[in-house]
Structures are given as structure tokens and as C-alpha cells.
Simulated assay, not measured.
Amino acid sequence: MSKTILIVEDQQVLREITKEYLVDEGYQVLEAGDGKEALALFQEHEVALIILDIMLPELDGWSVCRRIRKTSNVPILMLTSRSDEDDTLLGFELGADDYVVKPCSPPILLARAKRLLEGPQRHHSRETLYGGAIALHLPSRSVTVNGSPCNLTHTEFEILACLLGSKGTIFTREQLITRIWGYDYIGDDRTLSSHIRNLRSKLGAHADQIVTVIRSGYKFEEHA
């Protein structure tokens, strides 16, 4: 069965153009023109990805993202016509996985959506990766800390899987960005910093296992 993508955009022309590209790639598409309609569709259908505009009638994109994150870790790709850094950082703090600044070409939006739906290519022979009290199960995309569930967003999961899969290896910021978002990523490394900060917050007492290596990048260290 093809995956279902929910497009939340109040401009009908943009919705239709985006839908056409996604349908041509074999995806099923749901459309919402405002925040309330988006939440209703999300509750009624099994959605694999949400493409979410920030400026919406009824409920804005931030409010929609906040409400969805209370119950789901579905990947969220935010659209914004603003260039204000605070807008994108707020989206990440609320749990968005990636963002695209409008206007953008449909092929670029499609590539970013595919990246979130398919995830980076992995070559781990194990289904579960362990790092002290942290356990990451790749098939179910679930994480536990001291046996308790740790709810991560799509992007937070990918960052942890990358670091945990090569414990002790230093990944530069550029390497992590390429692995998580791909070679065609358009943005800056503040996006990565925001996700790392959110990930550490969720790991609680084990946040220090994600180590910042000054002027180099990040690595995962076992607790002694």
C-alpha cells in the first residue's frame, strides 16, 4: 500500500501543484486548507508524513505541530514564506523534522519529503543498538532509556541512530547533515544544533553521552 501524505496549505494552487508531484511518485495525498481541517484529517487517517505550512487560518502551523506531537512522532516538514530564524527554530522546538522556505521548486520539496519518508540508508547488521541504558530498535523506530519509552521525532531518531551505530566515532556537523538530510540540503547547521539540543533534553541524565567535540562535531560515548 502506498504511503499517505497530508498537505496542509491554504493556497489551493500550491496544494494542487504539490499534490500532483506526490501522486506521480505513487503517494496517496490528503489536503487541508486550514489547521482545524488538518487535525481532523490526521485523526481520521493513517498518515506517513505531514507537509505543514506555518501561516494558516483557524490554527497556525505551530499550533498544529504542537498538538500532533502530543500523540504522534509522524515526520513533519514545515513550509514557511518567512526567512526569520526564530520561525524555523520555534518549529524545531515544537517537534518539526525539517523545513523548506517558500517559494521552493516542487522537485526539491519532493526530495526532502522522500528523505523523511525513507530515511538514510543504513548498514547496521543488528536490529537493536545499545549505548549503556539507551536502546534503539531500528525496525520499530523505538527508543528506551532505562527501560522506559523515549519518544523521539523522526529526525532525533535518525541522529541518535547515526551516533549510536558508530559509538566513539566523531561525526563532523557536515557529515551528520548529509546523512540526515542529504547532499541537497539547503540551510545551515543551526538546524542540527536545535535537533541535538532537543535530543539531549529527552535523554535526560544520559544527555552527556552525546558529546560535543570542539571544532570537530559530535560523538556518542558510553558511560564509564
Score class of each variant (00 low, 15 high):
110 L>P: 10
111 A>M: 10
112 R>K: 05
113 A>Y: 02
116 L>R: 07
116 L>W: 02
117 L>V: 07
118 E>S: 13
118 E>W: 11
118 E>K: 12
118 E>N: 12
119 G>E: 01
119 G>V: 03
121 Q>P: 06
121 Q>F: 09
121 Q>D: 10
122 R>V: 13
122 R>S: 13
125 S>D: 02
126 R>F: 09
126 R>I: 05
126 R>A: 14
127 E>I: 11
127 E>Q: 14
127 E>S: 13
128 T>Q: 12
128 T>R: 04
128 T>V: 14
128 T>C: 12
129 L>E: 00
129 L>Y: 06
129 L>S: 03
129 L>W: 08
129 L>M: 10
131 G>C: 11
131 G>E: 08
131 G>K: 04
131 G>L: 15
132 G>D: 03
132 G>Y: 11
133 A>D: 06
133 A>M: 08
133 A>R: 04
134 I>P: 09
134 I>E: 01
135 A>M: 08
136 L>P: 00
136 L>M: 07
137 H>M: 07
137 H>Y: 15
139 P>A: 14
140 S>I: 09
141 R>S: 12
141 R>V: 01
142 S>D: 06
142 S>H: 05
143 V>Q: 05
144 T>R: 02
146 N>S: 15
148 S>V: 02
148 S>K: 12
149 P>N: 03
149 P>L: 08
149 P>G: 04
150 C>S: 09
152 L>A: 00
152 L>W: 00
154 H>L: 05
154 H>W: 13
154 H>V: 07
155 T>R: 06
156 E>R: 04
157 F>W: 03
157 F>A: 04
158 E>H: 11
160 L>S: 01
161 A>L: 02
162 C>W: 00
163 L>N: 00
163 L>P: 06
163 L>Q: 01
165 G>E: 04
165 G>F: 07
167 K>N: 08
167 K>T: 14
168 G>T: 09
169 T>W: 06
170 I>C: 15
170 I>F: 02
171 F>S: 07
173 R>G: 13
173 R>V: 15
175 Q>V: 02
176 L>A: 01
177 I>H: 04
178 T>R: 15
179 R>K: 07
180 I>V: 09
180 I>R: 01
180 I>C: 08
181 W>H: 10
181 W>L: 10
181 W>N: 08
184 D>S: 08
184 D>Q: 11
184 D>W: 08
185 Y>P: 01
185 Y>L: 02
185 Y>K: 00
186 I>L: 15
187 G>K: 02
187 G>R: 12
187 G>Q: 05
187 G>P: 14
188 D>G: 04
190 R>I: 04
190 R>F: 04
191 T>C: 13
191 T>P: 00
191 T>W: 01
193 S>T: 15
193 S>F: 10
193 S>C: 11
193 S>E: 11
193 S>K: 15
194 S>H: 12
194 S>Y: 03
194 S>F: 00
195 H>P: 01
196 I>L: 09
196 I>S: 05
197 R>C: 11
197 R>M: 02
197 R>E: 14
197 R>A: 13
198 N>A: 15
198 N>H: 07
200 R>D: 01
200 R>A: 11
201 S>H: 14
201 S>M: 13
203 L>D: 01
